[in-house]
Design a protein around this nucleic acid. Structure first.
Length: 425
RNA sequence: GGAGGCGUCGCCUAGUCCGGUCUAUGGCGCCCGCCUGCUAAGCGGGUUUGGGUCAACAGCCCAUCGCGGGUUCAAAUCCCGCCGCCUCCGCCA
């Protein structure tokens, strides 16, 4: 959630931020009204409670009529306290709900507008010119079939649409990518993590995924558990309800986990191949740091993402996502989009978000500063989402005969394999 | 899945049976000060977190003994539900 003090003292700042995302600012007035009601309710309750406590202390000493009078008064007070407490609880809940409905304030530098209003920050590499090379590129579905790497038909047979099996060099490729990603993170000082992909509501809510993204979340029937769409969720909740030593920051984690997404509302989009699937594995970077370091850390996460894509010899562009396309928690988001030859366009491979103190407030993650405990900043960034990365590698590095040249950096992870060759069919 | 035990302000711990003087005990650690050539020891003080009020990071007040309800004038203490951890049994990758 946003800083309640900012809401109270600078509501116009929040209104402007809402406008930048293309959202109504009515939530601001609702939250302000809820805050006023809440504070009045707290004052009323505390006055009653204070009286009850002081009278209660006199009862054990009192005798006879005096005691009876006290008991009569405190009995009435008891009911009043109960009523005041109930009102306080309701006011507090309403205030909390109003505050949680407000998304993080978009960064000043983030472009205003919606999905199409992103700003391209840079292009890295040049998309391969297959026409000049004299052959028509095959898409990853066909390449995957020829290489015995991706089995979409059987994925559908076993689990339904948007599921797949990785087999043979496909499975080896995921393992190699995972290790390449983890090794890079490890070398950069990250702590490697394998995270649970089932979490309780608190973790899901705290990371902001039960808001407008709730339709995309799988829930386990009959249990209070959700399947995560990213290990950002368990990694953010990892230090929930903790006060961390500021000297230990930044805490950087590289977490592997399967990710599950309903992809509600995307019917008809990316129905072919493994660009958009209900399940995939991912190595995600997750950082806890101080608010004043968050922006610089965001750049570092972007740099690590670029370093990884560079190792895979992909051509890509980096975009600065517009405010309206930010998630609930993010103040700014950079996406790296790789060129997909058979689609003739750039597709998101990695994404890094600066969530400032938004998630930390919801999950009660604080640092012990000299001035006292205060919320930390959290950031996340994709290091490697397996299926899309495999798509980009296969399509980008394919040869006319359907073989695929393995990027140099990946070869040691595939036992020195230089070329993935079609299997005899 | 079955049986039992446990959960107190960083860590350990007293208190819970028999509700009120608990404004939660003591130790360790940590911080400040005194003392001392220096260090250690010793001595004194401080040390949960959140919130309300306020010009105030001063003072005062409220909440907080795993979480949520309930009983009561009054709950760390009594009752109910839940969560977590531990031990044993069963099952099992």
């Amino acid at each position: 959630m946003i800083d309640p003090k900012v809401l109270r003292d600078q509501p116009d700042l929040v209104r402007a931020a809402q406008a930048k995302r293309g959202l109504s600012d009515s939530v601001v007035d609702e939250a302000l009204a809820a805050d006023t009601r809440r504070r009045a309710a707290i004052a009323a309750y505390e006055a009653k409670r204070s009286e009850q406590k002081s009278l209660g202390k006199q009862i054990p000493q009192a005798q006879g009529e005096e005691k009876q009078a006290l008991l009569a008064r405190t009995k009435d007070l008891s009911a009043e306290v109960k009523a005041a407490e109930a009102e306080q609880g309701e006011a507090e809940d309403a205030w909390d709900a109003a505050l949680r409905a407000i998304p993080n304030l978009a960064d000043e530098a983030a472009p205003a507008g919606g999905e199409d209003d992103y700003v391209v920050l840079e292009h890295v590499g040049t998309p391969r010119d297959f026409a000049a090379e004299g052959f028509e590129p095959r898409d990853h579905v066909e390449l995957g079939r020829m290489l015995g790497a991706i089995d979409i038909e059987r994925g559908a047979k076993v689990s339904g649409s948007r599921f797949y099996f990785l087999t043979g060099v496909g499975a080896r490729l995921e393992r190699a990518l995972t290790n390449l990603a983890m090794d890079q993170a490890h070398a950069a000082g990250f702590t490697e993590a394998i995270a649970p992909s089932l979490v309780r509501p608190r973790a899901m809510e705290g990371t902001g995924f039960l808001g407008q993204a709730a339709d995309d979340v799988y829930r386990i029937e009959g249990e209070d558990l959700y399947l995560v769409g990213t290990s950002e969720v368990p990694m953010a909740a990892y230090h929930s309800d903790e006060i961390l030593d500021v000297a230990s920051l930044p805490l950087r984690y590289a977490a592997f986990s399967p990710c599950f997404r309903k992809e509600a509302g995307s019917h008809g989009k990316d129905t072919k191949g493994i660009i958009r699937v209900h399940w995939f594995d991912k190595v995600e970077m997750f950082v806890y740091t101080t608010p004043d370091q968050a922006a610089a850390e965001h750049q570092r996460l972007l740099d690590w993402e670029k370093e990884f894509l560079d190792k895979l010899e992909l051509s890509y562009r980096v975009i600065d996502t517009a405010a309206g396309d930010l998630g609930l928690s993010a103040t700014r988001k950079f996406d790296c989009e790789a060129w997909i030859p058979t689609q003739g366009r750039y597709r998101e491979l990695t994404s890094t978000s600066n969530c400032t103190e938004f998630q930390a407030r919801r999950l009660d993650i604080r640092g012990r500063f000299e001035s006292g405990p205060a919320p930390l900043a959290t950031l996340n960034g994709t290091l490697c989402a397996m299926p899309r990365t495999i798509v980009a590698i296969l399509e980008t590095h394919q040869n006319a005969d359907g073989s695929v040249t393995v990027p140099q950096a990946l070869r040691p992870y595939l036992g020195g394999l230089e070329v993935l060759k079609p299997i005899a069919s």
